[in-house]
């Protein structure tokens, strides 16, 4: 099992980790929506959102290096889709750079998608890295997300690591037999791997279900303690949401 890096930091201890999952879910979702709805023509609301993210990240004691590597994951989409926009956008004022010209509207679009993607991804990383999966799912349940989803997602998460390990073992076995796929029809080999992965995972599901039934599974995950919203949770939720909403509203009034 080598994949516990995914939520390794959700077991740290910090003021942010100690908050009720519901407070974190609401506060960070409000922040994301406020950020996405802010027009890109003003830069300072984004400074407020970024400041909120930095303050929370700092209080959460997550390693900076970890935050940055996770943030970089969003860049491929930005690079593939948006990086050419300033050069291709037609109309409006543009800056002539000799060989090509850079459109100002295009630059605005690039800034818009990059800053919003970065801030939203930071919020999602903060949420998932400061809350254990089970607690987060329970938080969603308490916020009236259908239990079907939280239970299926909990099972998915529980077996994800096992099945990813299985996939990695198959990959290693394939590579050690000198598989060097170069063309798309070599995808057939991947097909056989996926097929046996599927059969193994279904057979595992059957065994898991039998074992759980034998132990009295009734479709719910019982918990020892029921989390309660404390004053600190309300304070966090209200301060973060209000600051985010204020950042969005002031743009309209000015």
């Amino acid at each position: 099992m080598k994949h516990d890096f995914i939520d390794r930091y959700s077991r740290l201890e910090s003021p942010v980790h100690a908050l009720d999952p519901r407070a974190k879910i609401i506060a960070l979702f409000v922040l994301i929506v406020a950020c996405v709805l802010t027009p890109p023509t003003e830069w300072w609301p984004f400074a407020i959102y970024a400041a909120l993210v930095v303050i929370i990240a700092n209080a959460s004691r997550l390693p900076v290096k970890y935050m940055v590597t996770r943030l970089l994951m969003v860049l491929p989409f930005v690079l593939v889709v948006a990086v050419f926009v300033p050069f291709m956008h037609k109309g409006g004022p543009s800056y002539d750079l000799g060989l090509f010209s850079v459109s100002r509207d295009g630059l605005l679009i690039l800034w818009n998608v990059t800053i919003k993607a970065l801030i939203s991804v930071s919020c999602l990383i903060l949420l998932s890295s400061t809350t254990q999966f089970g607690d987060l799912m329970h938080g969603f349940e308490r916020l009236h997300v259908p239990r079907f989803f939280t239970t299926v997602a909990s099972f998915m998460y529980r077996y994800l690591f096992v099945i990813v390990d299985e996939a990695e073992r198959m990959k290693r076995a394939r590579d050690s037999r000198n598989f060097r796929g170069r063309w798309i029809w070599h995808a057939r080999v991947v097909g056989y791997m996926v097929a046996s992965l599927f059969l193994r995972s279904q057979e595992r599901a059957e065994r898991v279900y039998q074992a759980m039934t034998a132990r009295g599974f009734d479709g719910t995950f019982p918990r020892w303690t029921e989390p309660r919203m404390r004053a600190a949770d309300y304070v966090f939720m209200i301060i973060v949401s209000l600051t985010a909403v204020a950042g969005r509203l002031v743009v309209i009034w000015t």
């Binding site: 079907f148 239970t151 099972f155 998915m156 099945i163 992965l197 599927f198 599901a205 898991v208 599974f217």
Partner: peptide
């Protein structure tokens, strides 16, 4: 009873 099945299948799709 299909819930464990769907969850493990979701993990399978993710791994695939």
């Amino acid at each position: 009873k299909i819930i464990p099945m769907l969850g493990i299948t979701a993990a399978f799709i993710f791994a695939a």
